[in-house]
Design a protein around this nucleic acid. Structure first.
Length: 430
RNA sequence: CGGGGCGUGGUGUAACGGCUAACAUUCCUGUUUUGGGAACAGGCGACUCAGGGUUCGAAUCCCUGCGCCCCGACCA
């Protein structure tokens, strides 16, 4: 992509009403647009990040057998009444609206009812189980107070996975697989070393649910982390009884602020029973299906990455989620030779399947570098009269640096290509 | 939903109740310039969130509504 064509623009100042770091940086860098409180549009750069995150999630969920579906946002009142969740006192953040004929519909905040209703047509026998389905879809939640930029909105993309098992043993096995898939997702999106599985309150069916909490001061949750064991306890279940049960010692815990970037939950028969999702077992006996649900908010995950991976100059995207991997910057000369060479390199990289944002704008170097830091693409390559004369390119990784520190390497184009393709391979195997 | 704060060009700010609402930035034109947000010249862009009221006169004071932000509660 040539930056001169990009539908986006950077700005020096963030809107004054935007306080959260993630929204400030993402707006300044032109990734998102705020439509109203808690409601954000994604511009081309932001959408690319969202799609990369979505695809990582897809790969990992597909790998444990999840099948992708796409359900509706408009929800039928009847099935929600059966589970007792239509009431505004039970779910206080409903968005509801009306059809022309006067009947009420809801805007989905989650999809247990919807998917179970579908499955009644497809699950009859023990032979139809186990299986799991997921989607990446817009959720609507009428939050009393939106905040934290894209980390807590009223409309947001969520990956929601639902599992359907014959018995608890089968459910538990899948639940453990889901845990591992989640772990890989956070590793691949760059949050691995500061994201911890966290025990949180469960429900009527299981004592605990598990959250994935990423340490950041921007988070809303308080957790108690055992760094050695790599597990944590949410404040909501932080009592001696729980600690004893989990074999965690109070003195090994540190209190941390964190953001919940994922949640997995054993549902038991909470939904299958009222909605009558049953199957006939080997003995011909009708049984309720055992369910689990597993959520990840894509925008929240993206916001968390920005919160955690950014510095004074801007965002520092990990390779796997950056909108483009390479930022190619041409510092133009009068003769136009640099632009010519940069275009060639841009084409060469693009042909190799490497995402490049090519800053071909007629702007001064300072502006280009400042924009580049703000956008946060992981690999910066600079071409100028100087580098042309030396037969090299300048390479600088966009990692968090000390203020004023700008380490630069001079390498040949061949070496650059080799490095970038090496990184691609690492990505695939990790 | 309780408490507090705030609404002025795209963005950030200014303006005693009193001239044509100012400055910076962005944007446009031109000259010059090209390694960390260049300089100069010219220009576009706001009936000051909406509606009412007070006043000779309102961005400014008062009322109502709407919106935004913060703290708290909530987050199935």
């Amino acid at each position: 992509m040539k930056q001169s064509q990009l539908f986006s623009k950077t700005r020096k100042e963030a809107p004054k009403d935007e306080v959260s770091r993630n929204a400030q940086l993402l707006i300044r860098a032109g990734y998102i647009h705020k439509e109203m409180a808690g409601v954000y549009s994604y511009l081309p750069l932001g959408l690319r990040v969202l799609n990369k995150i979505g695809n990582i999630i897809r790969e990992e969920i597909n790998a444990i057998g999840g099948q992708e579906v796409f359900m509706t946002s408009l929800q039928d009142k009847a099935s929600w009444e059966k589970t007792g969740r239509w009431s505004d006192t039970v779910i206080d953040n409903w968005f509801k609206t009306e059809l022309k004929n006067g009947s009420e519909v809801g805007l989905a905040s989650t999809h247990e009812e919807a998917l179970v209703s579908i499955l009644k047509n497809y699950v009859q026998s023990f032979r139809d189980l186990p299986f799991s389905a997921y989607q990446i879809q817009t959720k609507f939640r009428n939050e009393a107070r939106a905040k934290s930029g894209i980390m807590r909105g009223r409309e947001f993309l969520m990956k929601d996975l639902y599992s359907f098992s014959r018995d608890i043993k089968e459910h538990d096995a899948f639940y453990e697989k889901a845990k591992l898939a989640y772990k890989r997702i956070y590793e691949r999106t760059g949050l691995g070393d500061r994201t911890f599985i966290t025990f949180a309150s469960g429900g009527s069916f299981s004592k605990y649910s598990h959250e994935f909490q990423t340490l950041t001061s921007a988070g809303e949750d308080v957790i108690y982390l055992d760094k050695k064991k790599g597990i944590a306890v949410n404040k909501e279940v932080f009592v001696d009884e729980v600690l004893n049960e989990l074999g965690i010692k109070r003195e090994n815990l540190v209190e941390e602020k964190a953001v919940e970037v994922g949640n997995i939950f054993s549902l038991g028969t909470k939904f299958s029973e009222p909605l009558e999702l049953k199957f006939v077992d080997e003995k011909g006996v009708k049984q309720n299906v055992i369910m689990g649900c597993y959520g990840i908010g894509l925008g929240r995950l993206m916001g968390a990455v920005v919160e955690v991976l950014s510095d004074a100059d801007g965002i520092v995207w990990p390779d796997a989620v950056a909108p483009f991997r390479v930022h190619l910057i041409a510092i133009a000369d009068k003769a136009g030779k640099v632009a010519e060479e940069a275009t060639k390199l841009y084409n060469a990289l693009t042909e190799k399947g490497i995402d490049v944002l090519y800053d071909d704008r007629d702007a001064r170097p300072g502006e280009k570098f400042a924009d580049s830091d703000l956008l946060g693409l992981p690999h910066r390559v600079v071409l100028s009269e100087k580098t042309l004369a030396e037969g090299v390119v300048e390479y600088k990784p966009r990692r968090a640096n000390a203020v004023g520190e700008r380490p630069v390497e001079k390498i040949t184009q061949a070496e650059l290509l080799a490095r970038l393709s090496r990184n691609t391979q690492n990505e695939k195997t990790c």
